[in-house]
Amino acid sequence: MHRFHSISVVASLFVFWLVLSGYFTPFLMSAGLASSVLVVWFAHRMSVIDREGHPLELRGGVLSYWPWLIVEIVKSAWTVSKIIMHPRLPISPTMLRVKMTQTSSVGQVMYANSITLTPGTISVAIEGDEILVHALTQAGADDLAGGEMDRRVSTCEVRA
């Protein structure tokens, strides 16, 4: 599993190199592959590479979570846009604490980033297993406190 993880890091670095460089001659491609392998080897020796940086085990869950998140982002961005263009600016900003049920730090980061990515809610601080969230409207805060996003991130994490 450890070896498989390293090979996957090398593969993704190589694909990244290929997309950025755009050279497809054999010499340059082998040079790119060699540099990806060298980078991963050095990173292993420096032990700066870990499972969190390349969470391979999330690949299944993420694929079902992202479409839902994108729909959610579009809906809340539309709500926020309507609020901005409303002549009276009907906002009711609230601070609330949301409980996280994720156990790993990758899951917690995923949840906090999803909260921030959705317009209308921003994760301000993380205190223990709670996130301090600033919400633009009371309705958005209630929506988040309902905990659907938390549940989905947790299933995504557990499925791994």
Binding site: S81, L89, P93, T116, P119, H134
Partner: peptide
Amino acid sequence: RMPGFYTRMHAASVIDTL
């Protein structure tokens, strides 16, 4: 338009996402 720093952030995230 938004009053206060945190509420402005919500508006900026519309640019970043949608």
